[in-house]
Design a protein around this nucleic acid. Structure first.
Length: 567
RNA sequence: GCCCUUGUAGCUUAAUGGAUAAAGCAGGACUCUUCUAAGGUCUUGAUGGGGGUUCGAUUCCCUCCGGGGGCACCA
Protein backbone atom coordinates (compact mmCIF):
# COMPACT_ATOMS: atom_id res chain seq x y z
CA UNK A 1 0.00 0.00 0.00
CA UNK A 2 2.83 2.34 0.84
CA UNK A 3 4.28 1.86 -2.62
CA UNK A 4 1.06 3.02 -4.24
CA UNK A 5 1.09 6.22 -2.24
CA UNK A 6 4.77 6.81 -2.82
CA UNK A 7 4.32 6.43 -6.56
CA UNK A 8 1.60 9.07 -6.48
CA UNK A 9 3.90 11.39 -4.52
CA UNK A 10 7.06 10.84 -6.55
CA UNK A 11 6.34 13.17 -9.48
CA UNK A 12 6.16 16.15 -7.12
CA UNK A 13 9.37 15.44 -5.27
CA UNK A 14 12.80 16.16 -6.77
CA UNK A 15 14.94 13.10 -7.40
CA UNK A 16 17.17 12.27 -4.49
CA UNK A 17 14.78 13.37 -1.79
CA UNK A 18 13.80 10.33 0.22
CA UNK A 19 10.05 9.85 0.40
CA UNK A 20 8.76 8.12 3.50
CA UNK A 21 5.18 7.17 4.10
CA UNK A 22 4.12 5.87 7.48
CA UNK A 23 1.01 4.84 9.33
CA UNK A 24 0.38 7.35 12.13
CA UNK A 25 -0.45 6.11 15.60
CA UNK A 26 -3.27 8.59 15.87
CA UNK A 27 -6.26 7.96 13.64
CA UNK A 28 -6.86 11.70 13.42
CA UNK A 29 -3.65 12.05 11.43
CA UNK A 30 -4.90 9.96 8.55
CA UNK A 31 -4.49 6.41 7.40
CA UNK A 32 -1.08 7.23 5.98
CA UNK A 33 1.15 10.23 6.38
CA UNK A 34 4.31 11.73 4.94
CA UNK A 35 6.80 14.29 6.23
CA UNK A 36 8.35 14.88 2.82
CA UNK A 37 7.02 18.46 2.66
CA UNK A 38 9.13 19.39 5.68
CA UNK A 39 12.20 18.00 3.98
CA UNK A 40 11.45 19.97 0.84
CA UNK A 41 10.75 23.14 2.78
CA UNK A 42 14.10 22.81 4.47
CA UNK A 43 15.89 22.49 1.15
CA UNK A 44 13.88 25.23 -0.56
CA UNK A 45 13.83 27.56 2.43
CA UNK A 46 10.06 27.89 2.40
CA UNK A 47 7.45 27.57 5.10
CA UNK A 48 6.77 23.85 5.63
CA UNK A 49 3.02 24.23 5.85
CA UNK A 50 2.90 26.15 2.56
CA UNK A 51 4.85 23.40 0.81
CA UNK A 52 2.64 20.74 2.41
CA UNK A 53 -0.50 22.57 1.35
CA UNK A 54 0.75 22.89 -2.18
CA UNK A 55 1.71 19.21 -2.27
CA UNK A 56 -1.66 18.11 -0.91
CA UNK A 57 -3.44 20.07 -3.64
CA UNK A 58 -1.30 18.58 -6.41
CA UNK A 59 -1.82 15.07 -5.10
CA UNK A 60 -5.57 15.39 -4.93
CA UNK A 61 -5.57 16.45 -8.58
CA UNK A 62 -3.19 13.80 -9.88
CA UNK A 63 -4.33 10.78 -7.85
CA UNK A 64 -6.77 8.41 -9.54
CA UNK A 65 -10.36 9.47 -8.97
CA UNK A 66 -11.75 8.23 -5.65
CA UNK A 67 -8.40 6.88 -4.54
CA UNK A 68 -8.25 9.13 -1.50
CA UNK A 69 -11.17 10.23 0.56
CA UNK A 70 -9.16 13.17 1.80
CA UNK A 71 -5.64 14.58 1.61
CA UNK A 72 -4.83 17.17 4.20
CA UNK A 73 -1.85 19.39 4.96
CA UNK A 74 -1.42 20.00 8.63
CA UNK A 75 1.03 21.90 10.85
CA UNK A 76 3.96 21.69 11.16
CA UNK A 77 4.01 20.34 7.60
CA UNK A 78 2.65 16.83 7.39
CA UNK A 79 0.53 15.63 4.50
CA UNK A 80 -2.04 13.14 5.73
CA UNK A 81 -3.93 10.71 3.55
CA UNK A 82 -7.27 9.05 4.07
CA UNK A 83 -7.99 6.19 1.71
CA UNK A 84 -11.45 6.09 0.20
CA UNK A 85 -13.72 3.16 1.01
CA UNK A 86 -13.45 2.19 -2.60
CA UNK A 87 -9.67 1.95 -2.42
CA UNK A 88 -9.82 -0.11 0.75
CA UNK A 89 -12.43 -2.42 -0.72
CA UNK A 90 -10.50 -2.93 -3.93
CA UNK A 91 -7.18 -3.54 -2.25
CA UNK A 92 -8.76 -5.95 0.19
CA UNK A 93 -10.22 -7.83 -2.72
CA UNK A 94 -6.74 -8.29 -4.15
CA UNK A 95 -5.53 -9.50 -0.77
CA UNK A 96 -8.40 -11.93 -0.40
CA UNK A 97 -7.64 -13.53 -3.75
CA UNK A 98 -3.91 -13.86 -3.13
CA UNK A 99 -3.00 -17.14 -1.42
CA UNK A 100 0.51 -15.85 -0.83
CA UNK A 101 -0.29 -12.36 0.32
CA UNK A 102 2.82 -10.67 1.64
CA UNK A 103 5.22 -12.68 -0.49
CA UNK A 104 7.51 -10.75 -2.79
CA UNK A 105 10.16 -11.41 -5.37
CA UNK A 106 12.71 -8.96 -4.03
CA UNK A 107 15.19 -11.78 -3.38
CA UNK A 108 14.18 -14.02 -6.25
CA UNK A 109 17.06 -16.03 -7.63
CA UNK A 110 19.28 -15.31 -4.62
CA UNK A 111 20.74 -18.04 -2.47
CA UNK A 112 21.16 -17.19 1.19
CA UNK A 113 22.64 -19.27 3.95
CA UNK A 114 21.42 -18.69 7.48
CA UNK A 115 23.47 -20.31 10.22
CA UNK A 116 21.86 -20.60 13.62
CA UNK A 117 21.30 -22.58 16.81
CA UNK A 118 24.93 -23.83 16.84
CA UNK A 119 24.76 -26.07 19.91
CA UNK A 120 27.66 -27.97 21.36
CA UNK A 121 27.47 -31.75 21.44
CA UNK A 122 28.18 -33.07 24.95
CA UNK A 123 26.28 -30.14 26.36
CA UNK A 124 22.57 -29.50 26.68
CA UNK A 125 20.42 -27.26 24.52
CA UNK A 126 19.47 -24.43 26.79
CA UNK A 127 17.15 -21.51 26.38
CA UNK A 128 19.92 -19.45 24.79
CA UNK A 129 19.90 -21.89 21.90
CA UNK A 130 16.14 -21.44 21.71
CA UNK A 131 16.78 -17.78 21.10
CA UNK A 132 19.23 -18.38 18.28
CA UNK A 133 16.97 -21.01 16.76
CA UNK A 134 13.87 -18.86 16.96
CA UNK A 135 15.51 -15.81 15.45
CA UNK A 136 17.40 -17.77 12.80
CA UNK A 137 14.34 -19.69 11.69
CA UNK A 138 12.32 -16.50 11.41
CA UNK A 139 15.07 -14.74 9.44
CA UNK A 140 15.13 -17.76 7.14
CA UNK A 141 11.40 -17.58 6.60
CA UNK A 142 11.53 -13.85 5.94
CA UNK A 143 14.07 -14.54 3.20
CA UNK A 144 11.92 -17.30 1.79
CA UNK A 145 8.92 -14.99 1.78
CA UNK A 146 11.01 -12.58 -0.29
CA UNK A 147 11.68 -15.27 -2.84
CA UNK A 148 15.19 -16.33 -1.81
CA UNK A 149 16.47 -19.88 -1.81
CA UNK A 150 17.45 -20.41 1.82
CA UNK A 151 19.95 -22.93 3.13
CA UNK A 152 19.62 -23.45 6.87
CA UNK A 153 22.96 -24.32 8.38
CA UNK A 154 23.88 -25.50 11.82
CA UNK A 155 27.45 -25.40 13.09
CA UNK A 156 27.98 -27.77 15.95
CA UNK A 157 30.99 -27.75 18.23
CA UNK A 158 32.00 -31.38 18.31
CA UNK A 159 35.60 -30.66 19.29
CA UNK A 160 37.15 -28.24 21.72
CA UNK A 161 37.85 -27.98 25.40
CA UNK A 162 34.21 -28.37 26.38
CA UNK A 163 34.24 -31.82 24.81
CA UNK A 164 37.44 -32.75 26.59
CA UNK A 165 35.90 -31.67 29.89
CA UNK A 166 32.83 -33.82 29.27
CA UNK A 167 34.97 -36.80 28.30
CA UNK A 168 37.07 -36.45 31.41
CA UNK A 169 33.81 -36.45 33.35
CA UNK A 170 32.65 -39.56 31.50
CA UNK A 171 35.91 -41.29 32.37
CA UNK A 172 35.19 -40.87 36.06
CA UNK A 173 32.17 -43.12 35.66
CA UNK A 174 32.66 -46.85 35.74
CA UNK A 175 31.74 -48.72 32.58
CA UNK A 176 28.66 -50.40 34.09
CA UNK A 177 27.22 -47.04 35.14
CA UNK A 178 27.40 -45.61 31.66
CA UNK A 179 24.12 -45.30 29.79
CA UNK A 180 23.60 -48.16 27.36
CA UNK A 181 21.58 -48.65 24.21
CA UNK A 182 18.44 -49.42 26.20
CA UNK A 183 18.51 -46.09 28.01
CA UNK A 184 16.50 -43.11 26.81
CA UNK A 185 18.06 -40.14 25.07
CA UNK A 186 17.02 -38.01 28.01
CA UNK A 187 18.94 -40.26 30.41
CA UNK A 188 21.99 -40.17 28.17
CA UNK A 189 21.91 -36.40 27.98
CA UNK A 190 21.47 -36.05 31.70
CA UNK A 191 24.55 -38.20 32.10
CA UNK A 192 26.52 -36.03 29.68
CA UNK A 193 25.35 -32.88 31.39
CA UNK A 194 26.65 -34.13 34.70
CA UNK A 195 29.91 -35.30 33.15
CA UNK A 196 30.46 -31.86 31.67
CA UNK A 197 29.72 -30.07 34.94
CA UNK A 198 32.12 -32.40 36.75
CA UNK A 199 34.91 -31.87 34.21
CA UNK A 200 34.33 -28.18 34.05
CA UNK A 201 34.64 -27.53 37.76
CA UNK A 202 37.62 -29.87 38.06
CA UNK A 203 39.30 -27.97 35.22
CA UNK A 204 39.05 -24.78 37.20
CA UNK A 205 39.85 -26.08 40.64
CA UNK A 206 42.40 -28.84 40.13
CA UNK A 207 45.59 -27.97 38.22
CA UNK A 208 46.48 -31.62 37.60
CA UNK A 209 43.02 -32.28 36.14
CA UNK A 210 43.34 -29.24 33.95
CA UNK A 211 46.48 -30.71 32.45
CA UNK A 212 44.75 -34.05 31.95
CA UNK A 213 41.84 -32.40 30.18
CA UNK A 214 44.14 -30.46 27.90
CA UNK A 215 45.81 -33.73 27.03
CA UNK A 216 42.43 -35.31 26.29
CA UNK A 217 41.67 -32.38 24.03
CA UNK A 218 44.77 -33.06 21.97
CA UNK A 219 43.94 -36.75 21.77
CA UNK A 220 40.45 -35.95 20.52
CA UNK A 221 41.83 -33.90 17.66
CA UNK A 222 44.40 -36.59 16.88
CA UNK A 223 41.99 -39.48 17.45
CA UNK A 224 44.94 -41.28 18.94
CA UNK A 225 43.37 -42.97 21.97
CA UNK A 226 40.85 -45.75 21.42
CA UNK A 227 39.14 -45.45 24.81
CA UNK A 228 38.64 -41.72 24.29
CA UNK A 229 37.43 -42.30 20.75
CA UNK A 230 34.85 -44.70 22.06
CA UNK A 231 33.50 -42.25 24.63
CA UNK A 232 33.66 -39.46 22.10
CA UNK A 233 31.76 -41.32 19.40
CA UNK A 234 29.04 -42.39 21.82
CA UNK A 235 28.57 -38.95 23.35
CA UNK A 236 28.58 -37.20 19.99
CA UNK A 237 25.97 -39.56 18.57
CA UNK A 238 23.71 -39.19 21.61
CA UNK A 239 23.92 -35.44 21.45
CA UNK A 240 23.14 -35.18 17.77
CA UNK A 241 20.16 -37.50 18.06
CA UNK A 242 18.90 -35.51 21.00
CA UNK A 243 19.28 -32.19 19.17
CA UNK A 244 17.17 -33.53 16.31
CA UNK A 245 14.25 -34.21 18.64
CA UNK A 246 14.32 -30.59 19.77
CA UNK A 247 14.68 -29.16 16.25
CA UNK A 248 11.64 -31.18 15.30
CA UNK A 249 9.57 -29.74 18.13
CA UNK A 250 10.66 -26.24 17.15
CA UNK A 251 9.91 -26.73 13.46
CA UNK A 252 13.39 -26.29 12.02
CA UNK A 253 14.83 -28.50 9.29
CA UNK A 254 18.47 -27.89 8.61
CA UNK A 255 19.87 -28.38 5.15
CA UNK A 256 23.47 -28.60 6.18
CA UNK A 257 25.36 -29.49 9.32
CA UNK A 258 28.86 -28.19 9.78
CA UNK A 259 31.13 -29.44 12.52
CA UNK A 260 34.04 -27.84 14.26
CA UNK A 261 36.09 -30.96 13.70
CA UNK A 262 36.08 -30.40 9.93
CA UNK A 263 36.16 -26.60 10.13
CA UNK A 264 39.24 -26.94 12.31
CA UNK A 265 41.14 -28.79 9.61
CA UNK A 266 40.13 -26.26 6.98
CA UNK A 267 40.97 -23.42 9.32
CA UNK A 268 44.49 -24.69 9.98
CA UNK A 269 45.07 -24.84 6.26
CA UNK A 270 43.78 -21.34 5.67
CA UNK A 271 45.93 -19.84 8.42
CA UNK A 272 49.04 -21.73 7.40
CA UNK A 273 48.70 -20.64 3.81
CA UNK A 274 48.23 -16.97 4.74
CA UNK A 275 50.97 -16.54 7.30
CA UNK A 276 51.76 -13.08 5.96
CA UNK A 277 48.65 -11.83 7.69
CA UNK A 278 49.33 -13.51 11.01
CA UNK A 279 52.17 -13.35 13.46
CA UNK A 280 53.82 -15.84 15.73
CA UNK A 281 53.68 -14.94 19.37
CA UNK A 282 54.58 -17.11 22.35
CA UNK A 283 54.25 -20.21 20.20
CA UNK A 284 50.77 -19.27 19.03
CA UNK A 285 49.69 -17.79 15.72
CA UNK A 286 47.78 -14.58 16.25
CA UNK A 287 46.10 -11.89 14.24
CA UNK A 288 47.01 -8.42 15.41
CA UNK A 289 43.82 -6.44 15.32
CA UNK A 290 45.22 -3.32 16.96
CA UNK A 291 46.18 -1.76 13.63
CA UNK A 292 42.48 -1.86 12.74
CA UNK A 293 41.24 -0.61 16.09
CA UNK A 294 40.54 -4.15 17.29
CA UNK A 295 42.45 -6.44 19.55
CA UNK A 296 44.76 -9.40 19.04
CA UNK A 297 43.26 -12.85 18.86
CA UNK A 298 44.85 -16.26 18.82
CA UNK A 299 43.97 -18.29 15.73
CA UNK A 300 46.20 -21.29 16.34
CA UNK A 301 47.24 -22.01 19.88
CA UNK A 302 50.71 -23.01 21.01
CA UNK A 303 49.74 -26.69 20.82
CA UNK A 304 49.11 -26.20 17.12
CA UNK A 305 45.34 -26.54 17.50
CA UNK A 306 42.92 -24.19 15.77
CA UNK A 307 40.86 -21.93 18.01
CA UNK A 308 37.36 -20.69 17.36
CA UNK A 309 38.69 -17.97 15.07
CA UNK A 310 40.63 -20.28 12.75
CA UNK A 311 37.68 -22.66 12.63
CA UNK A 312 35.42 -19.83 11.54
CA UNK A 313 37.81 -18.99 8.71
CA UNK A 314 37.63 -22.57 7.53
CA UNK A 315 33.90 -22.73 7.98
CA UNK A 316 33.10 -19.61 6.01
CA UNK A 317 35.41 -20.59 3.18
CA UNK A 318 33.65 -23.94 3.02
CA UNK A 319 30.21 -22.40 2.92
CA UNK A 320 31.00 -20.53 -0.25
CA UNK A 321 32.72 -23.52 -1.81
CA UNK A 322 29.74 -25.78 -1.23
CA UNK A 323 26.97 -23.40 -2.25
CA UNK A 324 26.63 -20.51 -4.71
CA UNK A 325 25.86 -18.03 -1.96
CA UNK A 326 24.81 -14.46 -2.57
CA UNK A 327 24.66 -13.82 1.12
CA UNK A 328 25.55 -15.50 4.37
CA UNK A 329 24.00 -14.67 7.72
CA UNK A 330 25.34 -15.98 11.02
CA UNK A 331 23.08 -15.72 14.05
CA UNK A 332 24.81 -15.85 17.43
CA UNK A 333 24.68 -14.30 20.86
CA UNK A 334 26.25 -10.87 21.27
CA UNK A 335 28.91 -12.10 23.68
CA UNK A 336 31.14 -12.94 20.71
CA UNK A 337 30.60 -9.67 18.89
CA UNK A 338 34.20 -8.46 19.39
CA UNK A 339 35.69 -11.77 18.30
CA UNK A 340 33.63 -11.57 15.18
CA UNK A 341 34.95 -8.14 14.31
CA UNK A 342 38.51 -9.46 14.47
CA UNK A 343 37.49 -12.51 12.50
CA UNK A 344 35.76 -10.48 9.81
CA UNK A 345 38.79 -8.23 9.45
CA UNK A 346 41.10 -11.22 8.97
CA UNK A 347 38.56 -12.72 6.58
CA UNK A 348 38.45 -9.49 4.63
CA UNK A 349 42.19 -9.72 4.04
CA UNK A 350 42.09 -13.38 3.05
CA UNK A 351 38.70 -13.82 1.35
CA UNK A 352 37.41 -10.33 0.58
CA UNK A 353 34.47 -11.67 -1.36
CA UNK A 354 33.34 -13.96 1.45
CA UNK A 355 33.72 -11.22 4.05
CA UNK A 356 31.70 -8.79 1.98
CA UNK A 357 28.76 -11.17 1.79
CA UNK A 358 28.86 -12.28 5.40
CA UNK A 359 26.73 -10.69 8.09
CA UNK A 360 27.04 -11.41 11.78
CA UNK A 361 23.63 -10.94 13.31
CA UNK A 362 23.93 -10.98 17.07
CA UNK A 363 21.14 -11.29 19.53
CA UNK A 364 20.98 -10.55 23.23
CA UNK A 365 21.31 -13.05 26.00
CA UNK A 366 18.56 -14.86 27.74
CA UNK A 367 19.22 -14.22 31.38
CA UNK A 368 17.59 -15.50 34.45
CA UNK A 369 16.47 -13.05 37.11
CA UNK A 370 19.21 -14.60 39.26
CA UNK A 371 21.85 -13.73 36.65
CA UNK A 372 23.60 -15.52 33.85
CA UNK A 373 22.91 -19.15 33.20
CA UNK A 374 25.83 -21.45 33.60
CA UNK A 375 26.07 -25.02 32.43
CA UNK A 376 29.19 -25.28 34.54
CA UNK A 377 27.23 -25.02 37.76
CA UNK A 378 24.18 -26.73 36.33
CA UNK A 379 22.19 -23.49 36.64
CA UNK A 380 20.53 -23.87 33.26
CA UNK A 381 17.07 -24.21 31.89
CA UNK A 382 17.15 -26.69 29.06
CA UNK A 383 15.07 -26.09 25.96
CA UNK A 384 13.09 -29.24 26.54
CA UNK A 385 12.30 -28.70 30.18
CA UNK A 386 11.06 -25.22 29.36
CA UNK A 387 8.76 -26.51 26.63
CA UNK A 388 7.45 -29.18 28.97
CA UNK A 389 6.89 -26.78 31.85
CA UNK A 390 4.95 -24.42 29.63
CA UNK A 391 2.84 -27.34 28.47
CA UNK A 392 1.92 -28.25 32.03
CA UNK A 393 0.92 -24.67 32.77
CA UNK A 394 -1.15 -24.54 29.58
CA UNK A 395 -3.23 -27.58 30.45
CA UNK A 396 -5.00 -25.55 33.09
CA UNK A 397 -5.88 -22.87 30.57
CA UNK A 398 -7.41 -25.11 27.94
CA UNK A 399 -10.85 -24.05 26.92
CA UNK A 400 -13.60 -26.63 27.21
CA UNK A 401 -15.40 -24.97 24.30
CA UNK A 402 -12.81 -26.10 21.82
CA UNK A 403 -14.16 -29.64 21.69
CA UNK A 404 -10.91 -31.48 21.19
CA UNK A 405 -9.92 -35.10 21.45
CA UNK A 406 -7.13 -36.02 23.84
CA UNK A 407 -4.63 -36.28 21.02
CA UNK A 408 -5.69 -32.99 19.44
CA UNK A 409 -5.40 -31.41 22.85
CA UNK A 410 -1.78 -32.52 23.19
CA UNK A 411 -0.97 -31.22 19.74
CA UNK A 412 -2.52 -27.87 20.55
CA UNK A 413 -0.61 -27.65 23.83
CA UNK A 414 2.64 -28.32 22.00
CA UNK A 415 1.79 -25.76 19.34
CA UNK A 416 0.95 -23.08 21.88
CA UNK A 417 3.94 -23.86 24.09
CA UNK A 418 6.26 -23.32 21.15
CA UNK A 419 4.27 -20.24 20.13
CA UNK A 420 4.41 -18.68 23.57
CA UNK A 421 8.15 -19.15 23.85
CA UNK A 422 8.97 -18.03 20.32
CA UNK A 423 6.77 -14.96 20.52
CA UNK A 424 8.30 -13.91 23.82
CA UNK A 425 11.68 -13.95 22.05
CA UNK A 426 10.57 -12.33 18.80
CA UNK A 427 8.41 -9.58 20.20
CA UNK A 428 11.39 -7.49 21.16
CA UNK A 429 14.25 -6.10 19.13
CA UNK A 430 17.00 -8.54 18.38
CA UNK A 431 20.15 -7.57 20.20
CA UNK A 432 18.41 -6.86 23.46
CA UNK A 433 18.85 -9.14 26.41
CA UNK A 434 15.77 -10.90 27.64
CA UNK A 435 15.33 -11.25 31.36
CA UNK A 436 13.63 -14.55 31.43
CA UNK A 437 11.24 -15.11 34.26
CA UNK A 438 9.00 -18.10 33.80
CA UNK A 439 5.92 -16.50 35.32
CA UNK A 440 6.07 -13.10 33.69
CA UNK A 441 7.88 -13.76 30.42
CA UNK A 442 5.51 -16.42 29.23
CA UNK A 443 2.18 -14.79 29.14
CA UNK A 444 -0.81 -16.49 27.56
CA UNK A 445 -2.82 -13.33 27.24
CA UNK A 446 -2.34 -9.85 25.97
CA UNK A 447 0.72 -9.29 23.81
CA UNK A 448 1.59 -12.95 23.48
CA UNK A 449 1.86 -15.83 21.06
CA UNK A 450 -1.24 -17.58 22.38
CA UNK A 451 -3.24 -14.37 21.89
CA UNK A 452 -2.45 -14.47 18.18
CA UNK A 453 -3.18 -18.18 17.97
CA UNK A 454 -6.40 -17.79 19.92
CA UNK A 455 -7.53 -15.02 17.59
CA UNK A 456 -6.87 -17.27 14.64
CA UNK A 457 -8.82 -20.15 16.18
CA UNK A 458 -11.83 -17.92 16.87
CA UNK A 459 -11.88 -16.70 13.28
CA UNK A 460 -11.65 -20.25 11.97
CA UNK A 461 -14.46 -21.21 14.29
CA UNK A 462 -16.75 -18.66 12.66
CA UNK A 463 -15.91 -20.03 9.24
CA UNK A 464 -16.78 -23.55 10.43
CA UNK A 465 -20.06 -22.36 11.93
CA UNK A 466 -20.94 -20.62 8.67
CA UNK A 467 -21.19 -24.01 7.04
CA UNK A 468 -21.84 -23.75 3.33
CA UNK A 469 -22.68 -20.04 3.24
CA UNK A 470 -20.85 -18.71 0.20
CA UNK A 471 -18.20 -16.07 0.75
CA UNK A 472 -18.27 -12.98 -1.38
CA UNK A 473 -15.09 -11.09 -1.90
CA UNK A 474 -16.25 -7.89 -3.43
CA UNK A 475 -16.21 -5.73 -0.39
CA UNK A 476 -18.65 -2.97 -1.32
CA UNK A 477 -20.83 -3.72 1.67
CA UNK A 478 -17.94 -3.16 4.04
CA UNK A 479 -18.59 0.12 5.80
CA UNK A 480 -18.52 -0.13 9.59
CA UNK A 481 -15.48 1.49 11.15
CA UNK A 482 -14.43 -1.74 12.90
CA UNK A 483 -14.37 -3.70 9.66
CA UNK A 484 -12.72 -0.94 7.67
CA UNK A 485 -10.05 -0.56 10.35
CA UNK A 486 -9.40 -4.28 10.17
CA UNK A 487 -9.24 -4.12 6.39
CA UNK A 488 -6.69 -1.30 6.54
CA UNK A 489 -4.56 -3.31 8.94
CA UNK A 490 -4.57 -6.21 6.52
CA UNK A 491 -3.35 -3.91 3.75
CA UNK A 492 -0.27 -3.05 5.82
CA UNK A 493 0.90 -6.64 5.90
CA UNK A 494 3.14 -6.69 2.80
CA UNK A 495 4.82 -3.46 3.94
CA UNK A 496 5.51 -4.95 7.35
CA UNK A 497 6.97 -8.15 5.93
CA UNK A 498 9.28 -6.13 3.70
CA UNK A 499 10.33 -3.95 6.61
CA UNK A 500 10.99 -6.91 8.91
CA UNK A 501 13.10 -8.52 6.20
CA UNK A 502 15.09 -5.39 5.42
CA UNK A 503 15.83 -4.70 9.09
CA UNK A 504 16.43 -8.31 10.12
CA UNK A 505 13.75 -7.63 12.68
CA UNK A 506 11.03 -10.24 13.09
CA UNK A 507 9.93 -8.07 16.01
CA UNK A 508 8.49 -5.54 13.56
CA UNK A 509 6.23 -8.25 12.21
CA UNK A 510 5.37 -9.54 15.67
CA UNK A 511 4.28 -6.09 16.78
CA UNK A 512 2.19 -5.71 13.66
CA UNK A 513 0.50 -9.08 14.11
CA UNK A 514 -0.51 -8.11 17.61
CA UNK A 515 -2.18 -5.00 16.23
CA UNK A 516 -3.84 -6.98 13.49
CA UNK A 517 -5.18 -9.48 16.01
CA UNK A 518 -6.33 -6.64 18.18
CA UNK A 519 -8.27 -5.11 15.28
CA UNK A 520 -9.70 -8.54 14.49
CA UNK A 521 -10.87 -9.05 18.07
CA UNK A 522 -12.43 -5.62 18.16
CA UNK A 523 -14.31 -6.44 14.95
CA UNK A 524 -15.29 -9.79 16.43
CA UNK A 525 -16.72 -8.20 19.56
CA UNK A 526 -18.61 -5.39 17.88
CA UNK A 527 -19.98 -7.27 14.90
CA UNK A 528 -22.30 -10.28 15.10
CA UNK A 529 -21.09 -11.71 11.84
CA UNK A 530 -23.43 -14.63 11.29
CA UNK A 531 -26.48 -12.97 12.84
CA UNK A 532 -27.00 -10.30 10.20
CA UNK A 533 -30.35 -10.27 8.35
CA UNK A 534 -28.56 -9.24 5.16
CA UNK A 535 -27.21 -12.47 3.63
CA UNK A 536 -24.96 -10.54 1.28
CA UNK A 537 -23.31 -8.81 4.19
CA UNK A 538 -22.71 -12.11 5.94
CA UNK A 539 -21.02 -13.39 2.81
CA UNK A 540 -18.78 -10.34 2.57
CA UNK A 541 -17.85 -10.40 6.25
CA UNK A 542 -17.00 -14.07 6.03
CA UNK A 543 -14.57 -13.22 3.27
CA UNK A 544 -13.04 -10.59 5.54
CA UNK A 545 -12.76 -13.15 8.33
CA UNK A 546 -11.19 -15.65 5.97
CA UNK A 547 -8.66 -13.11 4.70
CA UNK A 548 -7.77 -11.99 8.22
CA UNK A 549 -7.23 -15.58 9.32
CA UNK A 550 -5.03 -16.27 6.33
CA UNK A 551 -2.86 -13.21 6.90
CA UNK A 552 -2.51 -14.18 10.56
CA UNK A 553 -1.52 -17.69 9.59
CA UNK A 554 1.08 -16.49 7.07
CA UNK A 555 2.45 -14.04 9.65
CA UNK A 556 2.63 -16.70 12.33
CA UNK A 557 4.41 -18.99 9.92
CA UNK A 558 7.08 -16.34 9.33
CA UNK A 559 7.60 -16.14 13.07
CA UNK A 560 7.95 -19.91 13.15
CA UNK A 561 4.65 -20.50 14.91
CA UNK A 562 1.75 -22.71 13.95
CA UNK A 563 -1.89 -21.70 13.75
CA UNK A 564 -4.18 -24.26 15.40
CA UNK A 565 -7.75 -24.50 14.09
CA UNK A 566 -9.18 -24.97 17.55
CA UNK A 567 -7.89 -24.02 20.96
C1' G B 1 42.02 0.99 32.72
C1' C B 2 40.41 0.42 27.40
C1' C B 3 36.49 -1.08 23.76
C1' C B 4 31.34 -2.34 22.68
C1' U B 5 26.41 -2.09 24.35
C1' U B 6 22.21 -0.50 27.25
C1' G B 7 18.92 2.94 30.50
C1' U B 8 11.15 4.60 28.26
C1' A B 9 4.96 3.64 33.29
C1' G B 10 5.53 -0.56 39.43
C1' C B 11 7.14 -4.87 35.72
C1' U B 12 8.19 -6.73 30.40
C1' U B 13 8.57 -4.28 25.88
C1' A B 14 7.19 -0.58 21.11
C1' A B 15 8.23 3.97 18.55
C1' U B 16 12.85 4.87 9.45
C1' G B 17 14.89 12.67 13.46
C1' G B 18 8.37 14.19 13.43
C1' A B 19 2.40 15.27 15.51
C1' U B 20 -1.00 14.32 22.00
C1' A B 21 5.51 8.70 23.39
C1' A B 22 2.40 2.94 21.79
C1' A B 23 1.15 -1.84 23.98
C1' G B 24 0.86 -6.02 27.37
C1' C B 25 1.13 -7.42 32.56
C1' A B 26 0.05 -5.70 37.44
C1' G B 27 -3.81 -1.96 39.97
C1' G B 28 -9.17 0.29 39.62
C1' A B 29 -14.37 0.05 37.01
C1' C B 30 -17.41 -2.64 33.61
C1' U B 31 -18.54 -6.95 30.13
C1' C B 32 -20.59 -14.11 28.62
C1' U B 33 -29.64 -16.10 27.58
C1' U B 34 -25.10 -13.68 21.14
C1' C B 35 -20.07 -16.60 16.18
C1' U B 36 -14.38 -19.73 21.65
C1' A B 37 -14.09 -14.33 28.02
C1' A B 38 -6.64 -17.05 26.36
C1' G B 39 -11.63 -11.93 24.44
C1' G B 40 -13.76 -6.73 24.56
C1' U B 41 -14.65 -1.52 26.77
C1' C B 42 -13.10 2.43 30.15
C1' U B 43 -9.21 4.03 33.69
C1' U B 44 -4.35 5.27 36.81
C1' G B 45 0.82 5.66 35.23
C1' A B 46 7.01 6.81 31.76
C1' U B 47 11.80 8.87 27.99
C1' G B 48 18.33 8.19 34.27
C1' G B 49 20.78 13.64 35.25
C1' G B 50 22.99 17.90 32.65
C1' G B 51 24.57 20.28 28.18
C1' G B 52 24.54 20.65 22.62
C1' U B 53 22.98 20.05 17.12
C1' U B 54 17.93 20.78 14.72
C1' C B 55 12.01 24.14 12.67
C1' G B 56 11.46 19.45 15.56
C1' A B 57 15.40 14.61 19.78
C1' U B 58 13.30 8.44 23.15
C1' U B 59 16.28 8.54 18.49
C1' C B 60 22.26 12.15 16.63
C1' C B 61 26.81 14.45 19.54
C1' C B 62 29.36 15.55 24.47
C1' U B 63 29.41 14.64 29.70
C1' C B 64 28.01 12.48 34.36
C1' C B 65 25.49 8.35 36.85
C1' G B 66 23.65 3.21 36.68
C1' G B 67 23.17 -1.98 34.18
C1' G B 68 25.36 -5.85 30.72
C1' G B 69 29.28 -7.91 27.61
C1' G B 70 34.33 -8.21 25.95
C1' C B 71 39.73 -7.25 26.47
C1' A B 72 45.50 -13.77 23.35
C1' C B 73 45.93 -19.44 23.43
C1' C B 74 37.46 -21.71 25.74
C1' A B 75 33.36 -21.15 22.41
Amino acid sequence: MKDSIISILKPFVPDGTPVDVSVPEQGSFGHYSTNVAMRLANAEKKAPLVVADDLAGKIMKSAPADFFEKVEAVAPGFVNFWLSKKTIQEELQKASRNEHYGASESMKGKTVMVEFTDPNPFKLLHIGHLMSNTIGESISRLYETSGANVIRANYQGDVGLHVAKAIWGMEQTSKENMPGEEDSLAAKMEFLGKAYALGSSAYENQPETKAAIIEINEKIYARSDSRINELYDAGRAWSLAYFETVYKRLGTKFNHYFFESEAGKDGLEVVHSHLEIFKESDGAIVFQGEQYGLHTRVFINSKGLPTYEAKELGLNKKKFELYPLDFSVIVTGNEIIDYFKVLLKAMELIFPDVAKKTLHLSHGMLRLPSGKMSSRTGDVITAESLLDQVGIKLKEYMSDKADLSEQEKNEVIESISVGAIKYSILRQNPGQDIIFDFDTSLSFDGDSGPYLQYTYARLRSILRKAGDVKMKSDFELLEDEAELALARKILEFPDMVAQAQARYAPSALATYLHRLASAANHFYETTPILADENKERIAVRLALVETTARVLKIGLWILGMSAPEKI
